[in-house]
């Protein structure tokens, strides 16, 4: 899921200072699990804005904020509240925020969160990054552990000289990704896989902005 963190509300207030009335949009998926875009977070934002002399005309926690069409349909019932607002504050990730940018053609849209990474939830509201969405997965050759993400240098061929007692030089509390890979390959009796030198990464596989259509040809024909 996409991991988000709340921005400092005072910074948000400064960014939107020229507007008075806001419509708030959260998200019931990732941002709800992160506690940044659920009903509670939206209420907290409403209270904050109102205590600073602003008005909240309405709010919605759509099912999936980044699903542009679905969110647009869900917003139909809030047509008046939306029309009444000077601006929209989106309390999900950068993708959800840009769905709103697309939906609200005539209103400014502001994010209330910083989007951090694609995360795994290790415990309730505790998240770790495991995948960088690089466009060409290599973990079939690295014991199911992504060195591109788990090593701050993203090294594909083995540990650097900064590894110390199995820990990373950048974050001494974090185990070295390549020591983890080594230990797992060893326990799986797969050390020969570690002898392969991976080719330099093809970064063009992850060129921005990404786009993909998985619509079948049949569907396209019907259309």
């Amino acid at each position: 899921m996409i991991i988000t963190k709340k921005k400092d509300p005072n910074n948000i207030l400064e960014t939107v200072k020229k507007y008075d009335k806001f419509f708030l949009i959260g998200c019931s998926e990732c941002a709800s699990l992160c506690g940044t875009g659920n009903e509670e977070a939206l209420q907290e934002m409403t209270d904050f804005l109102e205590s600073n002399g602003k008005k909240v005309t309405g709010q919605l926690v759509p099912k999936t904020g980044c699903q542009t069409l679905g969110t647009k349909i869900e917003l139909k019932k809030d047509k008046e509240a939306c029309a009444d607002a000077d601006a929209v504050i989106v309390m999900s990730c950068g993708a959800g925020t840009q769905s709103a940018t697309e939906i609200f053609k005539d209103k400014p849209v502001y994010p209330s969160n910083d989007s951090l990474f694609l995360g795994n939830m290790t415990r309730f509201q505790m998240f770790d990054e495991r995948c960088s969405l690089c466009g060409e997965c290599v973990i079939g050759k690295t014991a199911g552990i992504c060195p591109l993400t788990n090593c701050p240098k993203g090294l594909l061929v083995g540990p650097c000289g900064g590894m110390s007692d199995g820990k990373c030089e950048v974050s001494p509390d974090v185990p070295c990704a390549w020591v983890r890979i080594y230990e797992r390959q060893k326990s799986l009796d797969n050390l020969d896989e570690m002898k392969e030198v991976l080719e330099p990464k093809d970064w063009s596989a992850g060129q921005k902005p990404g786009n993909l259509s998985t619509r079948s040809e049949k569907k396209e024909e019907k259309k």
Binding site: G158, C160, E169
Partner: peptide
């Protein structure tokens, strides 16, 4: 040919690290 110390060790910690390739490559 070296990989190089991470930017977090230096005096421009906000710099974007590159590591497009590394020492063996």
């Amino acid at each position: 040919c070296m990989t190089g110390d991470h930017t977090s060790a230096g005096d421009h910690k906000e710099a974007k690290t590159v590591y497009d390739i590394e020492s063996v490559q």
